[in-house]
Write a protein that binds this DNA or RNA. Structure first.
Length: 825
RNA sequence: GCUCCAGUGGCGGAAUCGGUAGACGCGUUGGACUUAAAAUCCAAUUGGGCGAAUAACUCAGUGCCAGUUCAAGUCUGGCCUGGAGCACCA
């Protein structure tokens, strides 16, 4: 065996052999229990970045560990390959988006292989290929038939940079998630998926996801935004109209002093008097022009205009004025708000500004407030509320709503913040929405047998202000599947998040040309046992995928209702405390690391310094340290190769003290490493245990000048154990060394190691003696001691005797095998 | 404002159930080997006190203030700081 470690040679060699022998293929037929390990598939942007390296290494180590533990593991990879960057590259460089994408995939595939990842490439999925998007379109049609896909005219989020609309989930702080451009509102007719039908079950089933972090679950729960309250109806005085209002505070109805409708409220023109018409019109047009950012700014001073009309409070018969103000949102609740300035901070601000009256109806009996300086929004007792006076406000919510129900002017109502998912995109590089528009028949879905609706090739990417797809001469005009007459194709394509909402299902049956996936196979492999990816998808991708799974279950395509059993959200990779990014110039190129240190060093380092869920700070010194460690391991094996026998046996041997200790250290390492992986994949402590074991073997070896047969067997046990334990991480090094030691099968086919509970601990223990809870002495003792014996040893310690003489022993606490605490006065 | 997460040496981070705080590594310092360097190996490394230094001893110490307990990084209550998500959602 060579004395030096040459990762570059070793790694290429084994990558080739694994590929040739099909080492990582997954069979659908196996007696073993299944395990599905999945990384979030990448967008083929050009090159891998360190976030990818971290993500895929984590999942790869999990896969290999599970495989060694007797599971039939599915570990696939694919490409989320539709999307704007390809189209932008096409515009800039005149490249075909398809060619650009294919080249990126080719390069990144090469990089993934250099990382030594154990993927079954035969299940590769590429969302921009017709054999995949055919089924995305097919699924759209199934949703359409079920009434879950529909088209409507609505105020939608528009990003001018990207020249397309966006889903609500893709607007971050009023800006586009992809380009940070300012998002405006536009009225357009667009395709939506009815995710709101699933709002309640998406919320409720979060409880089932015990393998998900609380942070992700709360983010989803907040996004769904369930609230319970009432809808109350108010009759308009001047017109024969009713205004329904959603409120979570029906207990404050006796405090209403005005009512606000959103500027976009549907009946607003009817509600405006001729005198107010001009002012209201002006206010509405100003609101329309405002960007999301301006509108959402919280410290903005509230504005509004009176409509000139009035409504009646059905509880009191009182008349109050109607206003329009943009703090009422047309898309939430009913688009109208009953204003109670005394008990709502926003209404309070507004009332102050426009000198609207205020009426206190809830009070804290201990510190009554007349709400002069601020609204009182805490719980309290009702006042000025007729028969409800004296009632606790929580009870009053129910009682007052019940009164409204009886009176026919209200009902209980549950409201969600979640909106339907807008999936139309005015872009080329996406799956075409498979519908046509016929003058006679209206919207007609494309026949399933005519799928896929392929993207045209004859497009001009240099157009501005419209989707390139509309420049195709072959795409637009078609015939109506229904009447055979002339029809036009839908030119919008689907949000790429649609493609990624079901890709994990396709891996179970990636080559199926008859359907998106076989029902038995999808039920066999899913749900995903371990999903790994970035926290940035906490809402977007993960919520959409949960929705898809539930919808497809209701369509009878599969039998489970949550796609991802366990979710690990890995932290970001930082450099010098900041996220790696091209603009900051603090990126590290994986290729350079592979070249200078090898993939095993990269894998080891990316797992070593932080637990997977936390951010990871990349440091050159850290890489260097990991490289040195691998060298150290290699030298340990190489220097002792002549005395290592893979077929060693410890049976029937009796061991010297040092040999017994080394055996125990190995058992402790097996136990510790196995538990660390089982316990939330704490790879950073796994790696520290690799180091501890390596150090222990070196120390042991340094004490031996000559090795007898017993020593050789014990050393063989220790070193081969270290190799197996390290094999999921240092995949190439351990494989090479394994063969150098004479093996003719792969170390990755060896089963995981078992430990003996009796040996996975030190032969003696350190008895800690405390006096009044402070450590005063440590004594090496036999583990088998009884509690009384421990107590006796502790009390007889010279140090302890000195400390407690002349004092009264109040009590003595004995923790078996650990410590004795003597309480004295 | 609401929700969630985190806070431990110079740094990354360890610490099943409440039971030896600082594993393992990085960095730093000193030393060995070498003509020299690289590589490698050995030792020290929470702070204060007493020491020329070492050893021994001793006090303090896991964001802050209280509490529970024989015993608190860990549990409870109240704060502070940082991060993330949501946010004129009635």
């Amino acid at each position: 065996m060579k004395e030096s470690y040459f990762p570059q040679q070793i790694e290429k060699k084994w990558q080739r052999i694994w590929e040739e022998t099909g080492a990582f293929k997954t069979s659908n037929e196996s007696e073993k229990p299944k395990y599905y390990a999945l990384s979030m598939f990448p967008y083929p942007s050009g090159k891998l970045h360190m976030g990818h390296v971290r993500n895929y290494t984590i999942t790869d180590v999990i896969s290999r560990f599970k495989k060694a533990n007797g599971y039939n593991v599915l570990h696939p990879m694919g490409w989320d390959s539709f999307g704007l960057p390809a189209e932008n590259a096409a515009m800039k460089h005149g490249a075909d988006p398809e060619t650009w994408t294919d080249e990126n995939i080719k390069y990144m595939t090469k990089q993934l292989k250099m990382l030594g990842l154990s993927y079954d490439w035969e299940r590769e999925v590429t969302t921009c290929k017709p054999d995949y998007y055919k089924w995305t379109q097919w699924l759209f049609l199934q949703l359409y038939k079920k009434g879950l896909a529909y088209k409507k005219e609505a105020a939608v989020n528009w990003c001018d940079n990207c020249a397309t609309v966006l889903a609500n989930e893709q607007v971050i702080d009023g800006k586009c998630w992809r380009c940070d451009g300012i998002v405006e509102k536009k009225y357009l007719s667009q395709w939506f998926l009815k995710i709101t039908d699933y709002a309640e079950v998406l919320l409720k089933d979060l409880d089932k996801l015990t393998g998900w972090g609380e942070n992700v679950k709360t983010m989803q729960a907040n996004w769904i935004g369930k609230s319970q309250g009432a809808v109350l109806k108010f009759k308009v005085v001047e017109k024969d109209l009713e205004i329904p209002v959603y409120t979570t505070r029906p207990d404050t109805v006796y405090g209403i002093t005005y009512l606000v409708v959103a500027p976009e409220y549907k009946d607003i023109e009817k509600l405006t008097t001729p005198e107010q018409k001009a002012a209201v019109e002006e206010y509405r047009s100003r609101a329309r022009k405002m960007t999301e950012i301006e509108r959402l700014s919280t410290d903005r001073v509230k504005t509004g205009v009176p409509l000139g009309t009035h409504a009646i409070n059905p509880f009191t018969g009182e008349k109050f004025p109607l206003w329009t103000a943009d703090y009422a949102l047309v898309e939430y609740g009913t688009g109208a708000v009953m204003a109670v300035p005394a008990h709502d901070a926003r209404d309070f601000d507004f009332a102050k500004k426009y000198n609207l009256p205020l009426k206190v109806v809830i009070q804290n009996p201990k510190t009554p407030s007349n709400c002069v300086d601020e609204a009182y929004t805490e719980p309290g007792i009702l006042v000025n509320s007729e028969e409800f006076n004296g009632m606790n406000n929580e009870e009053a919510k129910k009682a007052i709503t019940e009164k409204a129900v009886k009176g026919g002017y209200g009902e209980f109502k549950t409201q969600y913040r979640l909106r339907d998912w807008l999936i139309s995109r005015q872009r080329y590089w996406g799956a075409p929405i498979p519908v046509v528009y016929c003058d006679k028949c209206g919207i007609v879905p494309v026949d399933e047998k005519d799928l896929p609706v392929k993207l045209p090739k004859d497009v001009d990417f240099s157009v501005v202000g419209k989707s390139p797809i509309t420049t195709s001469k072959t795409f637009l005009n078609t015939t109506c599947p229904h009447c055979g007459g002339p029809a036009r194709r839908e030119t919008d394509t689907m949000d790429t998040f649609m493609c990624s909402s079901w890709y994990y299902l396709r891996y179970s049956d990636a080559k199926n040309s008859e359907k998106p996936f076989d029902r038995d196979l999808v039920n066999k492999w899913l749900p995903v046992d371990q999903y790994v990816g970035g926290i940035e998808h906490a809402i977007l991708h993960l919520l959409y995928s949960r929705f898809f799974t539930k919808a497809l279950r209701d369509l009878g395509l599969l039998d489970f209702d949550e796609p991802f059993e366990n979710l690990l959200t890995q932290g970001m990779v930082l450099k010098d405390g900041a996220k790696m990014s091209k603009s900051k110039g603090n990126t590290v190129d994986p290729d350079e690391i592979f070249e200078n240190y090898g993939a095993d060093t990269a894998r080891l380092f990316i797992l070593s310094d932080s637990p997977p869920a936390r951010d990871f700070d990349w440091s050159d010194a850290g890489v260097e340290g990991c490289y040195k460690f691998l060298n150290r391991v290699w030298r340990l094996i190489a220097a002792n190769a002549d005395n290592i026998n893979l077929k060693f046996s410890l049976d029937g041997l009796t061991f010297s003290k040092e040999n017994d200790n080394l055996i125990r250290t190995v058992h402790m390492a097996i136990k510790g490493i196995t538990n660390d992986i089982a316990n939330d994949f704490q790879f950073n402590t796994v790696i520290s245990k690799y180091r501890e074991l390596t150090n222990a073997i070196y120390d042991w070896r340094a004490k031996k000048s000559q090795l007898n047969d017993e020593d050789k067997a014990v050393m063989s046990f220790a070193i081969t154990s270290l190799m197996k334990l390290m094999s999921p991480v240092a995949v190439h090094l351990t494989e090479e060394a394994w063969h150098e030691l004479g093996a003719d099968t792969s170390i990755h086919d060896e089963p995981w190691l078992k430990w003996d509970e009796n040996l996975a601990k030190a032969s003696s223990i350190t008895l800690v003696v405390q006096v009044n809870g402070k450590v005063k002495d440590k004594i090496e003792v036999d583990e088998a001691l009884s509690q009384d014996e421990m107590k006796e040893i502790a009390l007889n310690s010279q140090k302890i005797k000195e400390l407690i003489t002349g004092k009264q022993i109040v009590k003595v606490i004995v923790v078996p095998k650990k410590l004795v605490n003597i309480v004295v006065k």
